[in-house]
Design a protein around this nucleic acid. Sequence first.
DNA 1: AAAAATATCAAACATCTGTTTGAAACATAC
DNA 2: GTATGTTTCAAACAGATGTTTGATATTTTT
Lengths: 209, 209
Amino acid sequence: MNKNDTTKSKILDAAEQLFAERGFAETSLRTITARAKVNLASVNYHFGSKKSLIQDVFDRFLSEYSSVLNAQLNSLESNQSDSLTTETLLRALVSPLLALEKQREQSISIFMRLLGRAYAETQGHLRRHVTDKYGYVLVRFTLLFQNAYPNLSNDQIFWRLHYTLGSLIFTLAGSDALREIAEADFDRKMAIEEVIDEMIPFLAAGMKA
Amino acid sequence: MNKNDTTKSKILDAAEQLFAERGFAETSLRTITARAKVNLASVNYHFGSKKSLIQDVFDRFLSEYSSVLNAQLNSLESNQSDSLTTETLLRALVSPLLALEKQREQSISIFMRLLGRAYAETQGHLRRHVTDKYGYVLVRFTLLFQNAYPNLSNDQIFWRLHYTLGSLIFTLAGSDALREIAEADFDRKMAIEEVIDEMIPFLAAGMKA
DNA sequence: AAAAATATCAAACATCTGTTTGAAACATAC
DNA sequence: GTATGTTTCAAACAGATGTTTGATATTTTT
């Protein structure tokens, strides 16, 4: 059987999409199993509980993302001896998302809405799980920026990085809706790549301010 | 009886805080009425339904916010004949939040998490309600920026404004948690005003990029 | 091919959800 | 002070939720 057609991954696919669309609490296991065309009980059989399913959805996405990102940072570090430019670093942050989009044939906004939701779950199990398991990616990124901007203080780097993440997550999470509004106003539907191309100079200018 | 001690406003207060902390679906009417120390049935008596309660929570916050913001923009427009600086406009956007924080003795992050949640509710009744009723504030803001940057195209203004909103909402929504992390790293707890003072140059540089 | 382990299924379970009800308490008007 | 309208309250309601069960089917191992 194809690896993407197992009951387990059919559930993950359906859950990922529905969680991004509606949120965690607003998505029932019955809705998930209906879309995945599997039996209701199979969620608890394969994942144990809804909580674990949510974490597994994030694990699948974040492990794919951070492995591509880490590879990208490795090659950047080895090819360039001196410090990297802001634009290059920001592209390294975003491009794994575009790669994932192509590979999975799924909008970036799905992933970003998931991330945004994890972020909003300030008190929940999810935020702890994500930061425990993938916080090192953010740390690595912080170090690269500290290297690129030796004249900025550490807490300035820290905060500017979060301003940047806010822009990225927020804009990309709403990019589908925003692009529709923009289309109505300006008679042209932008590609997601164009939105990103517009955003990176904006963010780079802020980082350098 | 004090206007803030009515059953209705006790429910609004409790709901506002709980919605921001946990989300809408994750907050039951029983949790709300327990914290507000009122009877369960009083929510449906005073608000009709949970849906209406959610909308009323937003209406209370957004009408207070946008009335202060509009007043601020009015006085800015009348005092300065030529176009306004980015920094001034951004301060006008944020300062009503600081005023609300003082007046209500409640963290800004509560309001911002509420806004972020409304934003995440891409398909729900709430997003429509908010944009229908308060979208004009955003339009007014867009026009001011178009005036300040006549050389930028309209869709550039549109997108940069959304990058800015993303940074603002995301950072301020997580400001409590972020300030705690920053405190552990740098041995100093920043005031929310300091975070904003750091953020405005960042955003202004992006707008001007 | 028999045996063992794994996976699927329909049905039931207990619990929690928003909402409604009808009576009681309270406030206001005449 | 009685009558009228408004608000509070405990209890019940119907429906949805995550989870468990035990039987059946499927796959893997021997």
